[in-house]
């Protein structure tokens, strides 16, 4: 057997394949963790929640690696998994409020602030009041600066639908902020 063949055979040993794949998975995590963590950090209130969701996303990435087709960039594919994870999480949270009958959670009067300057934290609160899908489209487009083509792929819709979704989201956000008593004069 030639030396080259010997080498190929060596690379195909289970231990080497395992190592090779572990390395590429780790690289995928390192290259994309910041994007994915930031996405979740805008969606939830605490670091721990964002960290949990980031881990959940990458575990799913790992489990579905064999299904990844090279027609899309790895990061948009990972985003796609993250967005699904995020939307499910938001829905679960919303449901929990009603199922637990936790009256404390249903109180929402405390975040009405009159004549207040528009700030990051107010915006974060307002974003949580629009639908999960609209939250995602706003975060992906406005915060993370992705193109509508990318947003469409990630959200499994058309570019046009993504634009319509974004328009509704931004308009809703504006009225939520107005209901919270935000004024824009200072801007």
């Amino acid at each position: 057997m030639s030396k080259g063949n010997e080498k190929v055979k060596d690379n195909l040993k289970p231990d080497n394949v395992r190592q090779y794949n572990a390395d590429s998975f780790n690289r995928l995590v390192l290259e994309n963790q910041e994007k994915i963590y930031s996405l979740f950090r805008r969606m939830v209130t605490s670091h721990d929640e964002a960290d949990d969701l980031t881990q959940e996303t990458f575990i799913k990435v790992y489990k579905n690696l064999s299904k990844f087709r090279r027609e899309s960039a790895p990061f948009t594919w990972i985003y796609r998994i993250a967005v699904n994870t995020g939307i499910n999480y938001l829905r679960r949270q919303k449901a929990r409020q009603y199922i637990r009958l936790d009256s404390a959670d249903l109180k929402s009067g405390d975040d009405v602030i009159y004549d207040s300057e528009l700030t990051n934290s107010l915006l974060q609160k307002a974003i949580k009041k629009i639908s999960p899908k609209q939250q995602m489209v706003i975060i992906l487009r406005s915060y993370q600066g992705l193109s509508f083509k990318e947003v469409a792929y990630i959200m499994d819709s058309t570019e046009n639908a993504a634009k319509v979704n974004f328009s509704h989201a931004l308009k809703n956000l504006k009225s939520v902020l107005e209901n919270m008593g935000v004024s824009y004069e200072i801007m």
Binding site: L118, T119, N120, L123, I138, S142, Y143, L170, L173, K174, L177, Y184, M187
Partner: peptide, 8 residues
């Protein structure tokens, strides 16, 4: 709308 996107 500009004010909102500017903050983001």
């Amino acid at each position: 709308l500009s004010a909102i996107t500017a903050v983001m």
